[in-house]
Design a protein around this nucleic acid. Structure first.
Lengths: 252, 252
DNA sequence: AATCGCGTTTCATATCGTGGAACGTTTTTT
DNA sequence: AAAAAACGTTCCACGATATGAAACGCGATT
């Protein structure tokens, strides 16, 4: 592990939820020695990528926003997706997410809060796993199975043992089903008491860029309702893909 | 300059406007040798902080959004500021910006498009200089003059010779005027044909965190109108500060 | 056909990062 | 109130790691 990756690990640890962080916690989360984290933080603070509060607490710096401000491959897509997401929200009443793939995870680009009296504990920029979320499964369902296997392999080796090792065969069978019907389901797999339906979003070249989902508390969103929403979600996802320039060529 | 700062410089260069960048351009903008940039990019690509397109072009990676997703000191302020910004937009009809200070520059956190038939060439995350923008001057007006002098010094040494060296005495005199009347003016200084009025925003401790501004094309926003808007902008800025917990204690 | 410019690879050099140990302070425990 | 644990920070000798000149191969340009 080189120093750049270490600095990025510290920045990731900094941007974790729940307020300013203590140096020791950052060191542990980044998997580095405390003196190393201290030195890295000094560099980050100097260039405004981290903020040192008077006490020993550290927070993400404002310059990080400047990095994210530059347009990447997905920022055009985001703006054209927003109206579709809004409409999907008003059609379903539930919370809508739009996430793009980033390596072995997906990152939320947009969230439209539902009109129910609860809020999802998610936020733009948050990373979610691919193998146990509806958006993630939608993404996986559009990848070659060799790549899916590789992702599952790497994911199961991760220190985040929160989610138990998935069985590759089982997952691949479910993904085939997702491909067939055009939408994916997360039945309280990623978060207890939360169910989601998702569908895949493609860019103009036809490659998978991410997915969207409808999420709600399990007590307000039965499995049957999830399946009923499937075609709606899929239609919205296709609309985003087509706005991005993708000419659908298959099952319609 | 250590390797972390170099990597950050590459990331900054990557997030510059105008699409994917060539390696040579990145090297020049970051002030590094091409092989160094190449190696850094490989590391960044591997962790998804940069994207390598098939041809030799590089773009910011999706993982950067994950960094910005974590809450920093200003994200709470942003959500409480948004309604105020929306109202300021509907009151004035012009484009509203909210930016926070990040070192010797300011970074846009929010933008509310005006209802005029043109769009400002700005975007959230964009950095703007402090000495020739209304938000920047509002920020400077609340800093001790020694710090202002230091900022002007560093700013004028920057390679971005686009804006000519500002005269410290002149600037300090203007800033005193800004402090007195409570709003700052940018009369086509930062962008030709664009005029802005700005005011300073403080956090609960009373320290300057950033500012807001009303911007419009010069042909639709005369200098006189700018001065008329001054008190409105200032009131909105004060409202944001007070929502952040700042108890104003002076000229009302 | 010759030249230029670019992305990439290689490699010897020395710079820079590294984490154990230690220090002074603060917080928690007894 | 005293003792102990934990924390942020500093120091430093060691060695891994970053560095950029030079060179290569390729494509575009002349």
């Amino acid at each position: 592990m080189n120093s750049i990756e270490k600095a990025l690990a510290v920045m990731r640890a900094l941007s974790a939820p729940n307020g300013p962080h203590r140096l020791s916690d950052l060191a542990e989360r980044a998997g580095l020695a405390r003196p190393s984290v201290h030195r890295i933080l000094q560099i980050l603070v100097e260039s405004n990528y981290a903020q040192a509060r008077g006490d020993g607490l550290y927070a993400p710096g404002l310059a990080i926003r400047a990095l994210a401000g530059g347009g990447d491959a997905s920022s055009d897509m985001l703006s054209s997706a927003e109206p579709v997401l809004d409409e999907l929200q008003s059609t379903t009443g539930h919370t809508i997410h739009f996430a793009v793939r980033a390596g072995d995870a997906a990152v939320y680009l947009a969230k439209v809060e539902g009109d129910k009296p609860y809020q999802m504990a998610s936020r733009v920029g948050m990373q979610i796993p691919l193998h146990c979320t509806s958006i993630g499964k939608a993404i996986l369902s559009a990848l070659p199975s060799s790549e899916v296997a590789a992702i599952l392999e790497r994911t199961s080796e991760l220190p985040s043992a929160a989610h138990r090792k998935p069985d590759p065969d089982l997952v691949l069978r479910e993904l085939a089903e997702v491909t067939r019907r055009g939408y994916s389901i997360d039945d309280e797999e990623n978060e207890p008491n939360v169910r989601c339906v998702g569908a895949v979003v493609r860019d103009s070249t036809g490659s998978v860029i991410g997915g969207i989902s409808v999420s709600g508390l399990a007590l307000m969103l039965s499995l049957d309702q999830l399946h009923e929403l499937g075609s709606v979600v899929r239609a919205a996802a296709d609309e985003i893909s087509s706005r991005a320039g993708y000419l659908a060529s298959g099952t319609g």
